[in-house]
């Protein structure tokens, strides 16, 4: 597009100047809170709360991180979240990959029926209360299964995976395998899965991030604190305690207790934001690439 350069008028130059200013503005607006959190997590809370620290760390201290690392609730939540993420993602893949493969096969009689059965639930849905009652009637409340089974599979991911199989697995391969007498199961395990590393990675990331970040299922299905995932622990630290500082004051010892709780929350709140998001930050380069691809496939297909 060298034509762009040759024919660039004055109006175009002004316009491009505006484009760069606008993009830089967007960049700074998004970046600033992220930098602030990092700086605040290693600054003296007094400097943070007074507004003295507004960009770079001030009076650097790692006290917040020390408290976080010693906090049992956070550790336990971290462990539970790792467990839910690994186990939940494993279940998701066990459900998603074979289903998407079956639906990708043109000679699979009933694929239209099953697709319709799945897609219909996008438009009609039992809603929160009936779903909750089903989960409760199954006896899943306060078990780890409540964190895994109600989200065992997501339709959108089945669709993306099916598109992958349809566009990358050569048709001849399946026919050749069938002629050789290989069963569908053998074909899937020995040939399809080894060819599908990219989509398995994408799906593991999609589902994994979902498990890591979710809090609502835990909120409604878990009462036992020992099962709490990290996000519910965070909710107590970041949302509920801060709330108590906004509401009306209490008297006597209770007020003191709340005050010390607030001090604690003030010291650790930015640190826990970092600590809880760390795994996502580590995989973000992969996430960005694969998620963008996922959004693209979705937009082409539907």
């Amino acid at each position: 597009m060298d034509l762009n350069k040759i024919n660039e008028t004055k109006a175009d130059k002004v316009f491009m100047g505006f484009v760069y200013v606008a993009l830089t503005f967007a960049l700074l607006i998004v970046l600033y809170p992220l930098i602030y959190i990092i700086s605040a997590s290693i600054s003296d809370p007094a400097a943070v709360n007074s507004g003295e620290m507004w960009l770079w760390p001030k009076d650097i201290t790692f006290e917040g991180y020390r408290i976080i690392l010693q906090n049992d609730a956070i550790w336990r939540g971290y462990m539970m979240t790792i467990f839910y993420t690994v186990f939940g993602t494993f279940i998701n893949l066990i459900f998603t990959l074979p289903t998407a493969y079956a639906l990708s096969r043109k000679d699979f009689y009933g694929r239209r029926f099953f697709t319709l059965m799945f897609v219909l639930t996008m438009f009609i849905d039992g809603g929160l209360i009936p779903t909750y009652l089903v989960v409760r009637n199954l006896g899943l409340i306060d078990t780890v299964w409540a964190m895994v089974l109600p989200n065992a599979v997501a339709l959108w991911n089945i669709i993306i995976t099916r598109v992958f199989f349809q566009s990358t697995i050569p048709r001849g391969l399946e026919e050749a395998a069938t002629i050789d007498g290989a069963s569908n199961f053998k074909l899937f395990v020995k040939i399809i899965i080894p060819l599908s590393a990219p989509i398995i990675a994408v799906m593991a990331l999609f589902y994994g991030v979902g498990h890591w970040n979710s809090y609502f299922n835990a909120l409604i299905y878990l009462a036992d604190r020992s099962l709490y995932p990290l996000q519910l622990v965070l909710r107590e630290i970041l949302v509920l305690q801060e709330m108590s500082s906004n509401s009306v004051s209490m008297t006597g010892g209770m007020a003191e207790f709340i005050h010390s709780q607030q001090q604690l929350a003030a010291i650790i709140k930015y640190g826990v934001m970092i600590v809880s998001t760390l795994p996502i930050i580590v995989v973000y380069p992969f996430l960005q690439k694969y998620f963008v691809k996922g959004v693209m496939i979705g937009s082409i297909k539907e």
């Binding site: 979710s214 965070l234 970041l238 949302v239 801060e242 809880s276 998001t277 996502i280 996430l287």
Partner: peptide
């Protein structure tokens, strides 16, 4: 990719 709980916090 930031969780809704962290956003609220």
């Amino acid at each position: 990719f930031i969780s809704v709980v962290v956003i609220a916090g």
